[in-house]
């Protein structure tokens, strides 16, 4: 382990979690139930034929993949460090991570509180084992082709990064510029289409959140494009 970093050695934590929360991880989950449980993940993670990176990395070929190893995806430093230390995604590691992401990998950008129920985690992992067998597409970080959907007009505009940097001063009061997530999601390094769609979903109440509704309600396409341009250009620290 490198010196001078504050992260927890990953080996220690999964073992502790496994002992504490899932002493008998069986892996015998129900993939059909697991597909339902995946609803909690799929706003950010795609899996299956043609899956691409979005807010989170795609999950094709997940099992046996080293943590933080997908080229072109902007991982947190914490995730990259765990990968360098040898963390490879298998059932047990995934189970521990899903149970409490921020305990296993402090500093992860994944804004997910954790899935307490052991059986649900087993179902989810069973589903992922089936669904992730596809080979990733050639360039999963390439932006998906434009569709005539919410936000397409904003996405078609070339955002003014300087304007975005100014508008973003309003966002970074809560969403930290470093990508740290102490209870409020990280938004740095999101691909533009995901960023634009998320803002439109808050603006139109598809996603419900009082503060985000407030922050997005007066944003026009110009502003949304500028913000997407700015945040997609940032790297997590």
């Amino acid at each position: 382990m490198q010196t001078g970093t504050r992260r927890t050695p990953w080996m220690a934590v999964p073992v502790a979690i496994l002992l504490a929360t899932s002493p008998a991880f069986s892996g015998e989950g129900d993939p059909l139930k697991g597909e339902k449980a995946f609803k909690a993940c799929k706003a950010c993670h795609k899996v299956g034929a043609g899956a691409r990176n979005g807010v989170g990395p795609h999950l094709d070929g997940l099992f046996g993949r080293a943590a933080g190893s997908l080229k072109g995806f902007k991982y947190s430093k914490a995730m990259l460090a765990h990968g360098e230390d040898g963390l490879v995604w298998d059932e047990a590691a995934l189970d521990a991570y899903i149970a409490d992401p921020r305990v296993m990998i402090p500093g992860t950008r994944m804004s997910f509180r954790g899935m307490e129920d052991e059986a649900t985690r087993a179902d989810l992992i069973a589903y992922l084992k089936q669904a992730s067998v596809h080979n990733p597409v050639e360039n999963p970080s390439a932006e998906a082709p434009l569709r005539a959907e919410m936000g397409a007009a904003a996405l078609a505009i070339e955002g003014d990064r300087d304007y975005g940097a100014y508008l973003a001063t309003e966002c970074v009061t809560c969403h930290q510029i470093t990508g740290q997530t102490n209870g409020i999601p990280s938004i740095v390094g999101w691909p533009k289409p995901d960023f634009v769609r998320a803002l439109f979903e808050y603006k139109t109440n598809v996603r419900e959140h009082q503060v985000m509704k407030l922050m997005t309600v007066n944003l026009g396409n110009e502003e949304i494009a500028a913000l997407a341009e700015y945040f997609s250009s940032l790297d997590p620290q």
């Binding site: 970074v172 009061t173 809560c174 930290q176 740290q180 102490n182 209870g183 509704k213």
Partner: peptide, 29 residues
Amino acid sequence: FISQTGEDAGTRKATYEESLGWYSGITSD
């Protein structure tokens, strides 16, 4: 906007946790 009376416990807990995230965010800002 303003929080509503009669909100469920989960909403109120999420609001509190959001305030912790805000404190962390604004003090680093």
